[in-house]
């Protein structure tokens, strides 16, 4: 209800446009009843501001955004050439690596029935293990070595015979085979295979201690570690194997020895072309044929 105490608030609310129709009607009735308030009411109405619609913001284009969130990028020419060169380089490297893969086959094979398989058996097993690599990795996580297939040189086999009866052999064509052998009797075991790192990834820091020369010579080995290492190196250099394959065989031997932690003894008990290494509870047999 409009009174002399609140009429001014009603006038301001009228100017603000906040009165309901009923309240506005009530105020109008009060002002009609008291005409001396008309001037004050008009003064409050005058305090209302109207926007100047002629005043416009003249730079709307700069505020607009592309529809669809499309963003334009200008790529400099040198960046384009760089990207093209990079792609060509990637293709070239890929082709080069593919050609290398054809030359290098790196596998670990689990084998059965025999402790020293013949070539036909190995070939058949290689074909089989290619299909079983994933399972092989889980079943036989041992990763040992690789050598190169190229080069006409004597075949070199290395076998590691555990006391538990497992026999492993390494060929220079990059195939490592594992067989089960309890007390000298061959038992069949499921074969598996796994592609492993190439020679370049194998550890080489143990070469001086575990050089394969031990497996290829009957010469006495000096007790002095320095002399022994030097003597082994001289003997190893005389082994008639292509230099490239010899390096890879060093890697293989070094990695095998590193894998089995420690070589405790050596013994030429295989035949006149082979030698064995005692590596804790394992025996590594290496033969040349």
């Amino acid at each position: 209800m409009v009174t002399w105490e609140n009429y001014e608030e009603y006038l301001m609310m009228q100017a603000d446009g906040e009165l309901s129709p009923a309240e506005a009607q009530e105020l109008q009735a009060f002002v009609t009843l008291h005409p001396e308030l008309r001037k004050e009411m008009a003064a409050y109405e005058l305090t209302k501001f109207a926007p100047d619609t002629a005043q416009l913001y003249g730079d709307k284009q700069s505020l607009l955004k592309p529809v669809g969130d499309v963003r334009m990028f200008v790529i400099p020419k040198w960046v384009k050439y760089g990207i093209a060169a990079g792609l060509l380089l990637l293709v070239a490297v890929g082709l080069f690596r593919a050609s290398l893969e054809k030359e290098r086959k790196v596998q670990i094979v689990g084998v059965g029935k025999q402790d020293r398989p013949n070539r036909e058996t190995v070939a058949a097993k290689e074909h089989q293990v290619d299909t079983n690599r994933a399972a092989a990795h889980a079943a036989n996580p041992v990763v040992i070595s690789a050598t190169d297939r190229a080069g006409a040189h004597p075949k070199v086999f290395a076998r590691v015979a555990k006391k538990s009866g497992r026999i492993m052999s390494v060929r220079n064509d990059a195939t490592l085979e594992v067989a089960s052998n309890n007390d000298g009797r061959a038992q069949q075991q499921q074969m598996s295979a796994l592609t492993i790192a190439g020679p370049s990834r194998l550890p080489v820091d143990a070469l001086e201690l575990y050089t394969p020369a031990l497996a290829l010579s009957d010469a006495p080995v000096p007790n002095n570690p320095v002399q022994r290492s030097s003597a082994m190196r001289v003997l190893w250099d005389k082994v008639p194997i292509a230099k490239r394959n010899k390096k890879q065989l060093e890697n293989a031997a070094g990695f095998v020895a590193r894998t089995f932690r420690d070589v405790t003894s050596t013994n030429n008990d295989a035949d006149d072309k082979g030698i064995s290494l005692r590596i804790k509870n394992n025996q590594l047999l290496i033969s040349v044929n």
Binding site: P51, D52, Q55, Y57, K60, L63, L64, K65, V67
Partner: peptide
């Protein structure tokens, strides 16, 4: 979206400019 935003530019840029002025 961008469409709505652009609509706001067209609709309110002038009023905002007057208010800010």
């Amino acid at each position: 979206e961008a469409n709505d935003y652009n609509h706001c530019v067209g609709e309110w840029a002038d009023a905002l400019f007057r208010f800010a002025c």
